[in-house]
Nucleic acid binder design. Structure first.
Lengths: 346, 346
DNA sequence: ATCGTTCATTTGAACGTTCATAATGTGTCC
DNA sequence: GGACACATTATGAACGTTCAAATGAACGAT
């Protein structure tokens, strides 16, 4: 970027001169209007509008020693980015102005996550804090950030240490449990599960919700299977699963891609999703929407809002919360669980 | 965001003191090393490393009257965001540091695009320029930005006025033409087309490439159909199209979602994609990747790089190019065009 | 020895804002 | 009428950086 100046825009002294007051009065009119008398206030604000004045964020930053910006890393390494990455970034971007800040994305082709990227942003004082995504066990970032005294909030729980509380996450088991409830209402009596290979905290959580839901609603426990987050492997796992099920049964899935696999496998054997087999996914991704799969939509707006509140609290020196925050996903019904005929209620 | 200060970090005077030189010498050591004698240079740089010093971007911005940031609007209105929006933003974010800047996303739930958002960023001097996406005929943004003297570059051509040249786009006809070439090589002899309803500049362009490709390679012109960017409608359009085709023929599509529709319709009648019917999509989206559809991948890195160069040139006062820039997509072969048997070459 | 030249380095000022504090005006109470 | 509280507005300084201009040192040429 070049170093030649902009076309001049109004500064606070221009406004002050035009309104016949001092710098500080203009500043007060904008930042603490109660301090300035009603008539000067209106006069100043009118000039502000006329000259289209807004305080320079750079000058503010320099004065306050606050960037008014939150960094967030984009995953530029994995070929297939997460389905919710963009909606989540959008939610953050929308929530940011309400917290008097803006988002600054950064990324690296080398690795994800990339500690040096965080370091760089901090040293140049481009951001005050970070929002983390894709945190995993043994993630170095929370450690490093706390060591450096840099506020952060994570979308997704932080595993290593339960004393880490600056996070918000989706309540996975409540989600799958709600999916089972919906299937029960819709008339499905046997519910299986397609999850990820055991050991992933998120996946195990979602599986528990399925178990609990089936028990709670007095349904029959269908078979379960696992596959990684790949359509091909989801399809073959689904085929095995369908062998153990009959028309009129349902499958709860730990992700939308897995659910898509079930849908494709069902279609391949002539079962109509929603009618012959109930399918629910998880994440509310564009994929689910595209294929008409009922899915658990993550409340990304609420989560983004909460995460920015968390970093704000840290910047304000507020005490840490006692635990991370869980948010309930909401079921969006698609064709994959629609009732088009009465199912086997005795 | 709050107004209490950061944990103190080293400033240029700290470095100067520690190195026993003046502010300006440190500044020179960083910005124009050739101006400072070799031994002081190394001494200063060593202290810079020890203290982990980096110039404050806010102070730089204030001094240079340059934000060193480029704004870009995220579409928060349409339910289904574009498949390439995130990869494109990632490409921009990766390219930005090479242009000594960073990206600042913004969005609004009200409308897309939202002029007041651009206005606000400019008034607060948060960004120097914008990268536009989803430009459409009668888009108010290019007009407004040029009027205001604000540099911009658009991903996607600007329609109204051929004197508008600050854009880069994908060469759609070259892309579909390359897809036809690939189908010809793979052994398909008849190639149909599934596009969008006539009238969209992008769609019409891609259709022309299909026509040209078929002619150039001496293939038989298959039937064509059109559907909007919706899976359901793509499937029904594809069904009609398949009625007019036989096993061993192929369909070039104007988008990945359309191609997905063809794939689903083909599967529904027992035709194996790639073997019984060739299918190509367009955009290189995650959808295509997920479903193994051959697609024309947009060179997003190149385009992002070029767009940032365009805004840089404008900031530098460089003369406008004579026309917008077109970039060639590259075909990624998936299962939907794979050769698993010899096809009807006589 | 003096003067100009060149190179390395330093000093003063400015970018636009807000904090801390000072100055001014207005009214109230005794 | 003077003192005091209070509300309103104004002034100086500082945030960290870089530009423009000034200083000082070294060196040849006269």
């Amino acid at each position: 970027m070049l170093n030649t100046p902009h076309p001049a825009r109004a500064t606070i002294v221009d406004v002050a001169r035009a309104a016949g007051v001092s710098r500080q009065t203009v500043s007060n009119a904008i930042n603490s209007p109660e301090r300035v008398s009603p008539d000067t206030l209106s006069r100043v604000l009118q000039v502000v509008e006329e000259l289209n004045y807004r305080p320079s964020s750079a000058a503010r930053t320099l004065r306050h020693q606050r960037a008014g910006a939150v960094g967030t890393e984009l995953n530029a390494v994995t070929g297939t980015p997460s389905d919710v990455a963009l909606p989540f970034l959008t939610a953050l971007t929308l929530a940011a102005p309400g917290h008097a800040c803006h988002m600054v994305p950064f990324a690296s082709r080398e690795a994800f996550p990339m500690l040096s990227g965080y370091q760089d942003m901090v040293r140049r004082r481009l951001v005050d804090a970070f929002v983390l995504t894709d945190t995993h066990p043994a993630d170095p970032r929370p450690d490093w950030l706390e060591q450096a005294g840099i506020p952060y909030a994570s979308f997704g729980r932080i595993y290593d240490d339960s004393s880490r509380v600056w996070w918000a996450d989706v309540d996975g088991s409540a989600g799958t449990s709600a999916a089972v409830a919906h299937l029960a209402e819709t008339g499905f009596r046997t519910v299986g599960f397609l999850g990820w290979p055991a050991g992933s905290a998120v996946g195990d959580d979602r599986r528990l919700g399925w178990l609990a839901g089936v028990e709670q609603h007095g349904l029959a426990l269908g078979p379960e299977a696992a596959a990684p987050q790949s359509l091909r492997q989801a399809i073959s796992a689904a085929e095995r699963l369908l062998d153990g099920l009959a028309v009129g049964d349902a499958i709860v899935c730990a992700s939308d891609v897995l659910a898509l696999g079930v849908q494709q496998a069902a279609l391949a054997r002539g079962w109509r999703p929603g009618r012959d087999i109930g399918i629910t996914g998880f994440d509310g991704s564009a994929t689910a929407q595209l294929h008409g799969i009922s899915t658990l939509v993550q409340p990304l707006d609420e989560i983004a809002e909460h995460l920015l509140t968390l970093v704000h609290d840290q910047l304000a020196g507020a005490p840490a919360p006692t635990r991370g925050a869980l948010f309930l996903p909401t079921l969006t019904v698609g064709a994959s669980t629609v009732t088009t005929s009465t199912k086997g209620t005795p």
